[in-house]
Structures are given as C-alpha cells and as structure tokens.
Design a protein around this nucleic acid. Structure first.
Length: 223
DNA sequence: GACCAGGCACATC
DNA sequence: GATGTGCATGGT
C-alpha cells in the first residue's frame, strides 16, 4: 500500500467534513443507548431503529436494570419496528447478561479493561459481531477503534482501495494502518462515510453527482 | 412488488 | 474454509 494512501484518506475526510459538517455521533443520550442502537441497527435502516428506541424510551427501558427485568414479549414489541425483532430482543438480553457477568450494568466499570481484551469479550457475546463491538467501543466507550461497515466497503471499493468482497478486518486495517490513532477522528470519519453512503452511494443507484467524494473517484468510474 | 437498509449466526458442503 | 440462508420491518 503506497504511502499516498494516507494523503488520499485524509483528503477524503476533509472533503466530506467540509461539505457535511460535524456529525455529532453517536445519536444517543447515554453509552447504554449507544450499545442498544448498535445492536438494533444491524442490517436495518436507522429510521426504523429510531422507532424502536422511542418505544423503549416510552417504556422506560433504556436503562440496563429496567431492560433486564422487562418481560421478553414487551422487549420484542418495542423493538419490532427495527426488524428481526425476536433475534434482536434476544441479542439485547445476551448483551445485558454480559454486562451483568462483568458487573458493569453501569457500563463505566468496563473502563478497567484494556481495549483489546474488551473487544474479545464483546465478540464472545452471541449477537455481537465486529461492527457492533467496534461501534460500542468507539461510540459508547471512547476507545480508539475504527468502525467499518457496508457503506465503508462500498465507497472504498468504488474508489479502488479494496476489492468488492473485502472482509471486515482488512477493511478496518486500511484505516488503522494509514491514519493516526485519534478517537475523535475515527468517530467522525465513520460517521461521515455513513452519511455520504446513505445519500450518494446506495447499492442500486449511486448518485455520484454532488458527492463530496466524486473528485476522488478513479477516472474509470466517471462517465 | 421488488429492492434495500449503519449484521450476525448457523447449517451444509 | 468458503458459501448459502434465515432473520423481519418500513421506506423508496
């Protein structure tokens, strides 16, 4: 990988930030709510997650203790709008069991654990994969972890940086190995990629016109 | 009505 | 180890 990749990644970041402004991510009122949102947004439109979060808030279930003691059917009904609702209710339960095991229902006591160790333990929870774990680490716990996702892969692929079927770790390594380790920048970079992806880099109809990343597209993509 | 969305686990070969 | 499939709602 050429050293100029660093320059390219920074220029892309600057262009997105200049166009869109700061993202203020994660959109949540507490670290716990970040974690809940990270689970609920799996393969799901964020607007549907917002409905589910609103339902949970209405039932006062956005606190670990409350959610843990809620009846499963109630949780299922609350998260129904986010899709895969039975699975996601179970995943939330698994996450709460994890917090209970770690004696970290307040989430802050996890601060004692080293980031690598914490990531391993999160990944051991059934229902928490790499993106969800990294989202929790970065956006709820301020750990220097770069989150990548489907939009990141699509955008990077269209810019010739990675193959179409790039796996999570390789995609993450693209950023980790070329950018300085800064929580604030990791946070903003992923948020910007998602915002750009939603608006200009959809699967079916990429609307490259007006995309802040258009100047960085390989010549072959410009028609 | 098909396609898509800020994944993940599990079965099967 | 790679590949395929189920999970499910709501917007375009």
């Amino acid at each position: 990988m050429p050293a100029s990749t660093t320059r390219l990644l920074i220029d892309m970041y600057d262009a997105m930030l200049a166009r869109l402004g700061p993202s203020g991510w994660w959109p949540a009122k507490s670290p716990f709510e970040v974690a809940v949102g990270a689970i609920l947004t799996q393969n799901t439109n964020w607007s549907n997650v917002e409905k589910a979060i609103a339902n949970l808030r209405l039932h006062d279930l956005l606190k670990p203790e409350q959610l843990r003691s809620a009846r499963p059917e109630v949780v299922e009904e609350c998260v129904r709008p986010s899709g895969f609702f039975r699975q996601k209710a179970k995943k939330l339960r698994n996450f709460l069991d994890f917090l209970d095991r770690e004696q970290a229902l307040d989430l802050k006591s996890l601060a004692l654990l080293d980031t690598v160790e914490l990531r391993v333990r999160l990944l051991a929870v059934n229902g928490i994969g790499p993106e969800t774990a990294d989202s929790i680490l970065l956006y709820a716990l301020d750990r220097p972890v770069f989150v990548v996702d489907a939009y990141t892969a699509r955008i990077c692929n269209r810019h010739g940086l990675v193959p179409e079927d790039v796996d999570y770790d390789a995609l993450q390594d693209l950023f980790l190995s070329h950018l300085p380790e800064r929580v604030e920048h990791y946070n903003e970079y992923h948020a910007l990629l998602v915002r750009v992806g939603k608006q200009w880099c959809r699967k079916r109809e990429p609307r490259c016109d007006g995309c802040p990343l258009r100047p960085f597209l390989p010549h072959s993509h410009l028609s």
